[in-house]
């Protein structure tokens, strides 16, 4: 039948530094999006939880819009469309970071809101009865408990963000997949190249995924 393909990883090993540059880019983008996404997400989540309509409505609009639009569309919008409105252009990293972070913020906001609301009632009442302000109650009583419950969902978000960094290759940001494209076209070996890229991602993410399962099990048990 078909001749068995002869795998040759030599070109990849020779260009390990190219891949390494990509890995650095991936990690950098990941870190930025995690920080931005989660902090903005917390703010928006609290906003959705607020009673005042002036805060609640824009937060909801934000969440609905950025959850229901594909990330790649947002990245391209920031890269191609936004510069038209601004006096300067947007570099690939910024475009990708904006697209991924806003999307992650929208999803995280719902995780935060769900976590907070699953604690709220009695706890916040007890805190207020002691004389704490709403902000103090949130900060000292509700959030610390909510964080524990939200950990599995937030770790899942983190894993999704890591996978989304590959979308930045669409605007030629130097991350792993982008470097893969480069090497594959230079050496005419897409099989080895893309297999190695896939394996690298798998090796990075698999431990995290397993950790999430373990977290879910442990938290599921100790939660009354």
């Amino acid at each position: 039948m078909a001749a068995l393909y002869h795998w040759n990883f030599a070109p990849l090993l020779e260009n390990a530094d190219v891949l390494w540059a990509g890995a650095i880019g991936t990690l950098r983008l990941f870190a930025i999006c995690m920080v931005l996404g989660l902090t903005l997400g917390l703010a928006v989540g609290l906003g959705r939880h607020a009673r005042s309509r002036w805060i609640h409505a824009p937060a909801t609009a934000f969440v609905e819009f950025f959850r229901n639009t594909p990330v790649l569309v947002q990245i391209l919008w920031f890269y191609y469309a936004l510069p038209i409105l601004l006096p300067f252009s947007i570099d690939p990293l910024t475009a990708a970071a904006l697209g991924i972070s806003l999307n992650s913020a929208a999803f995280s906001a719902e995780i935060f809101r769900g976590g907070i609301e699953s604690i709220e009632r009695g706890q916040a009442e007890a805190a207020r009865a002691l004389g704490m302000t709403s902000a103090q109650a949130m900060r000292r009583i509700v959030l610390p408990q909510a964080i524990r419950r939200m950990l599995p969902a937030l770790t899942n978000r983190g894993i999704e963000i890591f996978k989304m960094t590959t979308l930045a290759s669409a605007v030629a940001y130097v991350e792993l997949l982008q470097q893969g494209k480069l090497l594959a076209s230079l050496n005419f070996n897409p099989i080895e190249t893309y297999t190695v890229i896939a394996v690298i991602f798998f090796l990075c993410l698999f431990p995290l995924v397993q950790a999430t399962y373990a977290l879910e099990r442990r938290l599921g048990r100790s939660d009354a």
């Binding site: 393909y5 590959t166 896939a198």
Partner: peptide, 25 residues
């Protein structure tokens, strides 16, 4: 299940579009 949930969809797409055709002619 694990492989397809733990690798980015774009990497999968590239593999199926660029790598697979060569592998299985």
């Amino acid at each position: 299940i694990e492989v397809f949930r733990t690798t980015p969809p774009l990497v999968q797409l590239f593999w199926f579009f660029f790598a697979l055709p060569i592998l299985i002619h």
